[in-house]
Design a protein around this nucleic acid. Sequence first.
DNA 1: GCCAACGTTGGC
DNA 2: GCCAACGTTGGC
Length: 155
Amino acid sequence: MNTINYWLMKSEPGVYSISDLQNQNQTIWDGVRNYQARNFLRQMQIGDLAFFYHSNAEPPGIFGLMKIVETGIADPTQFDVNSKYYDDKSTPESPRWQTVKLEFVEVFNNPLSLSTLKQNFHGDELLVVKKGNRLSVTPVIESVGSRILEIARDT
DNA sequence: GCCAACGTTGGC
DNA sequence: GCCAACGTTGGC
């Protein structure tokens, strides 16, 4: 079966924003150092769609869409002694942190701020609106994902 | 394996 | 800047 999954991925726009991805077209999503988030990265399939969420932003929310174009990439920053994401327990033979390559799809006409998301979805439907949730990579159930797309593309 | 101390995330 | 809600670390 080749079902397309939806994901939500957070980044602080001051560090890396949807505009940065638009300019670059593709990026490796590096720097994730949380096991639960990494496990979701491992589950991603080529062709899956991911919402780009701006955290620590004004306002926080979903601002665009990207697509997974490559999976199972060893995060290069884990081997870089000068990176803040360096992990001395990880080796190239058995890397601890895997990630994906993403391609820009679109900037949303109607971004969905966190408050808008809270009006439309509950915490059990969409983890990012759940109080206390800090995961930077989360799955989005399909019906919620397509509803977000509808709202985001509405003109 | 427990859990206190500490660090981080991220909304407000 | 505040602080709630986590996750991680390390002594025992």
